[in-house]
Design a protein around this nucleic acid. Structure first.
Length: 565
RNA sequence: UGGGGCGUCGCCAAGUGGUAAGGCGCGGGUCUUUGGAUCCCGUAUUCGAAGGUUCGAAUCCUUCCGCCCCAGCCA
């Protein structure tokens, strides 16, 4: 009997980081452990770029039986806030991940201070009393080496005394800093005696007034990793130059297994900006309604927009992880969103720009209920009953008095199907004084109830509709890309990304009409409005005052044809 | 003109000396009570360029070109 190994799907190619992790495990490095961390600074909301990092770090931990900590890199009290801590936790959870431990760099302040004293004692760090400008001057330039600070040769005893007094609050902000004593001539600027601690008389959101000196990222990060026994410390490309310092610190203060920093390219999305600074600017200057504005690439914004965590995870899995600078087409994100929502969203009918239709041969006052499929992708979603009557509304876009070629929707004399209801034929067009179409007169064919003609005749279009007497009013917010150019950062001299803001990124439609079953839809509920797109109920929505956000439109073949002609 | 990275289809991305995966997008077709979805088919004789090594190169060597990052007491 042949020992048949289980059939395996062809292995998806591993990204370079997972390859390293697998090699490390195979080689038994660090005892074969895998421990990652996601280390946000709580100074802003998480965005889709963070989602890439979250999926990577938590994903690897999950795939290789490891752990992943959520660690707040809260070393700069002047920019951080608990509001952000709470939002970040909520976003990570919403994305579907559970951290092994929730930690804060500030948890390590006392130990970090102890490490610094150790470095000073061993002559590896010193207190510098140059001011910020002087330090910059001494640093040299990209092509010329720096110069030693005159304070670089202070005695260990003096350094110890000064550092203790820095902590004790004896000096004002900026009076001194603690620096690593490495090499002012290094071609890597990060190694030219980097600052380890600075004085900041500022309350910290967690440690309050306990400290007036705070460690720098470059100091706190590697040591926090080492304390947590992180094995693979994943970060973005711009930290590549910091790796020698990372290694220098860990080697100086720890023995045994070292965490390995690996850098990957951050995510960029076309037609958007991703830096926290710019997103903050959009919020603070009121260009958007807040961090969770549905046009924002923040997790909170995408959530409010109606994206699912599954779609975001799928997107992150598809874009890959590599070291090449990249700009992902937003269409890629939209694809993941459509694919997920297509599978799960309940279909409903909603008319965004209503056009009145009177069925002249339909009995006045009669109401019947037609059965409508809830989701053709999912038979178990069943059907529902939707009221049908003499006066209806259809979409303005679905009628053209003078239809061009390839326009298959309603036109004078033309017969189309009303979804799951009847065939109707347009018999008259009523216009206002200015010639604008105001209302349509149609006749219906009673024999086509349900949407099929017993004589087998066919129509080329199926329209969505609502019954005038039963429909529920709603506000619908249509979103377009926030910026009108692919790369908003690419602004000419004297201009900024704000000059590329798309003035039409939000279109609010009032007077929309949706089928009555939606009357009690709750915030967060997602639907497909047939033939239009995916929509979700906004938190602004109230009973009797529904508000929908369009998450993403459905592909529209006619719109494509029209665009090309 | 210092250091660190990166260049494979419009956008991502596999490939690590044996004769260019896949996804998105795009084009065409099928099907359809959503012009949705599905399903087909097509989309790089070529891997930034030029030399070289080799029976054989996207993969090795040399030179060149282009792009990104670094001079915070930010992360």
């Amino acid at each position: 009997m042949a020992d048949q190994s289980p059939a395996r799907a062809p292995a998806a190619p591993l990204d370079f980081i997972r390859s390293i992790v697998e090699q490390d495990i195979a080689a038994g490095r660090r005892g074969g452990r895998v421990a990652t961390r996601f280390p946000p600074e709580p100074n802003g909301y998480l965005h889709i770029g963070h989602a890439k990092s979250i999926c990577l770090n938590f994903g690897i931990a999950g795939e290789y039986g490891g752990t992943c900590n959520l660690r707040f890199d809260d070393t700069n009290p002047t920019r951080e806030d608990v509001e952000y801590v709470d939002a970040i936790e909520a976003d990570v959870r919403w994305l579907g991940f559970a951290w092994s431990a929730k930690l804060y760099a500030s948890d390590y302040f006392e130990r970090l201070y102890g490490f610094a004293v150790d470095l000073v004692t061993r002559g590896l760090a010193y207190v510098d009393s140059l001011d910020a400008d002087q330090i910059r001057e001494h640093r040299g330039t990209l092509t010329t080496p720096g110069k030693d600070s005159p304070y670089r040769t202070r005695s260990v005893g003096e350094n110890l005394d000064l550092f203790a007094r820095m902590r004790a609050g004896e000096f004002p902000d900026g009076a001194h800093v603690l620096r690593a004593k490495i090499d002012m001539g290094s071609p890597n600027l990060n190694m030219r005696d980097p600052t380890l601690y600075r004085i900041r008389h500022a309350a910290h959101h967690r440690t309050g007034g306990a400290w007036c000196i705070y460690p720098m990222y470059d100091y706190a990060h590697p040591l926090s990793d080492a304390i947590e026994r992180i094995t693979h410390s994943l970060c973005t490309l711009e930290f590549e130059d910091h790796r020698p310092l990372y290694d220098w610190l860990v080697r100086a203060l720890f023995e045994g297994d070292m965490p390995q920093q690996i850098e990957f390219a951050r995510l960029n999305l076309s037609y958007t900006v991703m830096s926290k600074r710019k997103l903050l600017q959009l919020v603070e200057q009121g260009h958007v309604a807040g961090w969770d504005d549905p046009r924002m690439p923040t997790i909170a914004g995408l959530r409010r927009r109606g994206c699912t965590p599954e779609a975001i995870r799928d997107f992150c899995a598809r874009i890959g992880v590599a070291k090449k600078e990249n700009v992902i087409d937003v269409a890629q994100l939209e694809h993941s969103v459509r694919e997920d929502l297509n599978r799960r969203a309940r279909r409903v009918m909603g008319v965004l720009r209503p056009l009145k239709v009177v069925l002249t041969n339909y009995p006045d006052g009669q109401v019947e209920e037609v059965d409508v499929v809830n989701n053709p992708e999912d038979a178990s979603a069943g059907t529902r009953r939707v009221p049908f009557s003499r006066v209806l509304y259809i979409e303005q876009d679905d009628f053209l008095e003078d239809p061009p070629k390839k326009f298959f929707r309603l036109a004078p004399g033309r017969e189309v199907r009303l979804r799951c209801a009847y065939f109707i034929t347009c018999t008259g067009v009523i216009k206002d004084a200015r010639g604008a179409v105001q209302e349509l007169r149609c006749v219906y064919d009673p024999a086509t109830r349900g949407g099929d003609a017993p004589d087998g005749r066919r129509v080329k279009a199926t329209l969505h509709w609502v019954s005038a007497a039963h429909a529920v009013g709603a506000e619908v917010r249509l979103y377009d890309r926030l910026f009108s150019v692919e790369d908003p950062e690419d602004a000419p001299e004297g201009r900024t990304f704000l000059d590329h803001l798309n003035p039409a990124s939000l279109e609010t439609l009032g007077g929309c009409l949706v089928e009555p079953g939606l009357a009690d839809a709750a915030p967060g509920d997602r639907f497909q409005f047939e033939r239009l797109g995916y929509f979700c109920v906004d938190p602004d929505s109230r009973p009797g005052a529904l508000v929908f956000n369009r998450t993403v439109s459905l592909r529209d073949a006619w719109a494509n044809i029209r665009r090309r002609v």
